[in-house]
Design a protein around this nucleic acid. Sequence first.
DNA 1: TCTAGCAACTGGCTCAAGCCAGATGCTTGA
DNA 2: TCAAGCATCTGGCTTGAGCCAGTTGCTAGA
Lengths: 260, 260
Amino acid sequence: MTPSGASAQQPPSRRIAEDLRRQIETGTLRSGAKLPSERKLAEQYGAARNTAREAVRLLAEQGLVTAKHGSGVFVRTPQRLFRFGSDRYSLKNRETGLTPFRLEAKRQGKVARIEVPSIERERPPADVAERLGVPADDESVVHRENHYFADDEPVQIVSTYLRWDEAQGTLLMQRKTGKDGIYGRLQDLGHVMTRVRDEISARMPTPEEAAVLELLPGVPVLEVLHTSLDQDGVPFEVSRYVHRADQTGLLYELPVEQED
Amino acid sequence: MTPSGASAQQPPSRRIAEDLRRQIETGTLRSGAKLPSERKLAEQYGAARNTAREAVRLLAEQGLVTAKHGSGVFVRTPQRLFRFGSDRYSLKNRETGLTPFRLEAKRQGKVARIEVPSIERERPPADVAERLGVPADDESVVHRENHYFADDEPVQIVSTYLRWDEAQGTLLMQRKTGKDGIYGRLQDLGHVMTRVRDEISARMPTPEEAAVLELLPGVPVLEVLHTSLDQDGVPFEVSRYVHRADQTGLLYELPVEQED
DNA sequence: TCTAGCAACTGGCTCAAGCCAGATGCTTGA
DNA sequence: TCAAGCATCTGGCTTGAGCCAGTTGCTAGA
């Protein structure tokens, strides 16, 4: 009999992957369920182990499934998203004395932890230099790298860039930046955050990012290039946020400009 | 000699991938350049073809290279991003008579084309029902599916959901919706877009999305769940945007709430 | 001069076999 | 009773072989 349907002329690995995908989507294989082992799948479908393995890899690439060395392959449980709202920059939130991340974590009932692996004077990346209005061929910025954890799970990597001439010799060069964090110190310097510009993109993580964020295959990252502008429209801080996309989302709520 | 450094105890496929990655990042392999063939790589590194192949796959997963059947593997050229600014909702732009997408395309010197594969009455997905304030167990919405192209390249898939009781019998059920598009008709119905809520996440595409958007392996999608609120704070339209992340970015510019 | 067709490249996919390493639970000896 | 250790699961990774299907450019014949 000639096989019919869309799955007919597909290679075996795809056919197996499609079959499993359907089982996951229809609930035959529930969230958290264990798939048959690679060897069993191969036997069931009359294919080589490598072919079954390839099918599993395809599913993992789509983020549907995750393999655990030694124990099996499991249907991934959708994680509740850790949402970063656009009001995280709101000055009203300063009153709480919490930084935006701690605030967001608290709101979602998680324990926040922040590591500061490095604070160094550096030459800025081209995109940062452009937005901060500093020379790219000069050690014109201070780069603060932060790693953020919620309930001990790594959630995001943040690289903050500040003008060296402003940060030099201030608390901005220290791990502990005092009340209201770096934004408090920047306000002391006369910068009131008045507008923000967030440029958002998505991509696959670099191997380093995957390691820090403990990312499984098939999980992309959200990158936000954030610029803070003060009351005079001067950019005074640029940060690059790298979020794991399987646990993080962004939320922007904004008014629509009316016609006159 | 015992091999030293981080690459020492790594499996061969990773070692090869790392090596190629370094060559790409240092410019030894420039953008658009052709990598050695799988068979040549295998020979160079003294590995099996499958191992070299696995290394190439790792790079493709990271979005660094792209394979062309029959001709070779090439270093991917970073595409200029098609940015969707938050002012795309601005009512001022209505004056141009262009829909947000056409406007954005024109701004970037590209030719926009929009296909409308289907307009149907449906039961809304749970997340849409919740945001639009309609029952999820009823055919309470009209679903308009649109595919957007820029210079004939597919850029985004948009699913727009409107209340069935409002759309029934109006131009909202037609392909041609008249002046100012659906937002014009919704305004006729008394809904002035006053606030928007965009929920952003990133993930790997489904096979269907990958097909429509002609996505190469290693390219994630940006998903925006958009809600339009009118002058009374009533949600009157929900859209799900699925953007290809290799050519698309989002831009949000917004004022920061001040403390009193 | 042109073109049809072929050879020799490319990646796509599979197979069958093997060794390694993590996880797990049973068994056996203290 | 308890714990050490081992058998036997699991996925991780490699090998080397083979066939298929796009692509490309040369070559021979009209």
